[in-house]
Design a binder for these strands. Structure first.
Lengths: 269, 269
DNA sequence: CAGTGGTCTAGACCACCAC
DNA sequence: TGGTGGTCTAGACCACTGC
């Protein structure tokens, strides 16, 4: 079919039962893994690939869409499609929030351990009205005032994470939590100073396709999956004192958890 | 543009800077959330929607592709596109593996608590050659023999999870782990009988687009994200005695973790 | 057999980037 | 200004479903 004659043996067989665009995605993926297209370099343009493989540009575009979802390539509009080169970052929940290691920079430490240049930007620190969801997580009434600390973290100037923390205003009002630098021991240190000692943490992890806003902030494609972590710090008396919502690209991060094998505590939430 | 005259006010405005297919996806999503398209029912066909919204069928198809990725709808080839109705299932890692609660059915208990009809199928139980990855996780040499137990779990006959557990053959050989029913206390109970007592667990969580094989087994679209959990059971002496790989649809599951706030143990892996 | 969604193409227009 | 990717369309063919 389609004028395919003697070239049948020389060009890769993009035919047959499986959809062409999936076969092409597999082919391009293998070229990336073999470093025929090395990390950081531009792939051939879509018209070039279309000509090489004997399909329309739309089909190439769709194949590349699969590679984008999987995080293999990143498109720069008008400039070309580039092979990605960021290694995975491990987020060790327990180490991260372990009493010893705390500081301003759990995320920064993770990035640095991989030889990446970390940075954290604060976007907003101040009181707001709690959304229904945040209020429910903090066990306060919807619309009550909460302190929000919105941060963005970067590795080699590439955005890696959105992290928004919320505290009941009754706790945060007039405290060092309103400052950008919360000092030695970080926000949990300051909470402890005020008598709110963390007893345990919970995290609820979901994964979903990134929203449009998240794509903007994290520089993701609109078809890439993200992790959303709802992190809650509880006192021993089972009062939530902080809720943090983290959103991060799933293709960059691995989440690590660790726990002892023992009967769960008598508390039940 | 495009023959749009007096109907401009009556039909939704699909125009303007944003791509049409994203606007259409938003529109359809809101109709699903408002139950204009109730759960379990068929959406209008693609040609119908194309006529209603004044766009080509390809554009409708692309919009529906977004809803599929997000798990809002499920397509039955040749029959139509149906609104999804499965609730989220929470997987509490600690409770799940807590020494008290163990049995054959952690996944089953989770499903049952939501009023869903659980089922677990065993696909394979027997010795195989370890892949490089599994061997590395079990701290044995690549190609060594391991016992694999491959299971599939279901809720209301819909597949929810792939779970493959691996044990060093030196431990598993001739043991009750070769049986389908491992009895009271499950596989960890039998390991303990043999002197391999679990000290702690680790889980490495990633999320990615489902592979073709996983789409088949889990009845997913090829653009939907899945969780992959690498679960390892360790003795107090830091020897891995079981590795389990779980793959599950991200749009169905929420993963829950909980831990005490204390300095991490001295061990470091 | 008619209707459904899956895929593909050629051609087109656009916004954006780099030169 | 030319090249890049983003999007859209009309028309087509296909496999599959259900009657």
């Amino acid at each position: 079919m389609h004028g395919m004659t003697s070239s049948e043996r020389t060009r890769p067989a993009i035919q047959a039962p499986r959809a062409r665009y999936t076969q092409i995605a597999d082919l391009l993926r293998s070229r990336i893994e073999d470093e025929a297209y090395p990390p950081g370099t531009a792939m051939p343009s879509e018209p070039e690939l279309a000509a090489e493989l004997g399909v329309s540009r739309v089909t190439i575009n769709r194949a590349i869409g699969l590679l984008r979802s999987a995080g293999y390539v990143k498109v720069r509009r008008g400039a070309g499609t580039y092979v990605r080169s960021i290694p995975r970052i491990v987020r060790d929940a327990r180490g991260r929030y372990g009493a010893r290691v705390r500081g301003t920079g759990a995320a920064d430490a993770e990035a640095k351990s991989l030889g990446l240049q970390p940075r954290t930007d604060y976007v907003e620190i101040g009181p707001i009205q709690a959304s229904a969801e945040i209020a429910s997580l903090l066990h306060i009434r919807s619309g009550a005032t909460v302190l929000v600390r919105r941060r963005r973290t970067f590795a080699n100037d590439e955005p890696t994470q959105i992290a928004d923390s919320y505290y009941p205003w009754s706790i945060a009002k007039g405290s060092p939590l309103l400052e950008m630098d919360t000092g030695v021991g970080g926000s949990y240190g300051r909470l402890a100073d005020m008598g709110y000692v963390v007893g345990y943490f919970t995290e609820d992890v979901t994964a979903r396709i990134a929203s449009e806003a998240e794509c903007q902030i994290l520089d993701l494609d609109s078809t890439q999956p993200v992790f959303q972590i709802i992190h809650t710090a509880w006192t021993e008396e089972h009062t939530p004192i902080e809720v943090a919502v983290h959103v991060m690209s799933a293709s960059i991060w691995t989440l690590r958890y660790e726990w002892e094998d023992q009967p769960p505590p008598s508390r039940r939430r």
